[in-house]
Nucleic acid binder design. Structure first.
Lengths: 122, 122
DNA sequence: TCCTACGATGGACTGAGTCCAAGTCAAGAA
DNA sequence: TTCTTGACTTGGACTCAGTCCATCGTAGGA
């Protein structure tokens, strides 16, 4: 655990942030000016493979990093401004995929993305 | 409707393809060698805004274009090789998001992505 | 003290997509 | 028929996100 990694981890601390790698880099650089983008990417990659952080790509552009990895949840995204909220739907979407619709796949994960307009975008 | 647009539309014809823009370009160029990438992107963009084609981004890399736009469906993706299948889960995921989990959003759309391993990737 | 190895750095590179100025073409007007 | 207009296409430059890699720095061990 180096100072760089600690800073990246601290930037992501807080339950409701969904930052892009560049935003993480900008915030980390605020505390540790010489930190490089490569280090931020490396550290984010490690946090993801440790299961501490979830990678979210809601718009086909920059991936976002979600530190709320220990509480299963889904995402609600504003189609206009891109705001993301964590949400907790009822029901179990995995159970909604009948065997004959699995085509022999071993299904292990479901991601649900709700889209619409947030209150500020009406 | 120009010959370029017709070729792009024809390339996407067929129910179970999920091509990237570059794949669409390659197949279109097979029939119309001088077609440019910009035209392919323009045409795909128009097909998407006409609702004839759906944009799918399952991996945070290249977007894929799904011409099966008139039959609502979700996607099942192999985490190893990236194969995509159209699937039809039972239930209505929109109904699974209670009002108090909508945070004032006008929710209009749900995307469900099932992930796992396809038979060839065990 | 010197070595070694891991992590950090920054710059080059890639892939996907967008932008834009210039070229082409077809349809209608003169 | 020729001219004009506007829409579409082209290709090249550019941007943005992310990866790669050679080199550097540093902490811990011999």
């Amino acid at each position: 655990m180096t100072s760089q990694r600690r800073v990246v981890a601290e930037v992501l601390d807080g339950d409701h942030v969904h930052l892009t790698a560049d935003e993480v880099h900008a915030r980390a650089a605020h505390r540790l000016p010489e930190i490089s983008r490569a280090t931020v990417y490396n550290t984010l990659g490690e946090l993801v493979s440790l299961g501490e952080v979830i990678e979210v790509s809601t718009d086909g552009r920059a991936k976002r990093y979600d530190p709320n990895a220990h509480h299963p949840h889904q995402h609600l995204v504003c189609s206009n401004c891109g705001t993301i909220r964590d949400v907790h739907p009822t029901g179990n979407p995995l159970a909604d995929l009948p065997a004959e619709e699995r085509f022999g796949f071993t299904v292990s994960e479901v991601e649900v993305t709700y889209r619409g307009l947030c209150p500020s975008c009406v």
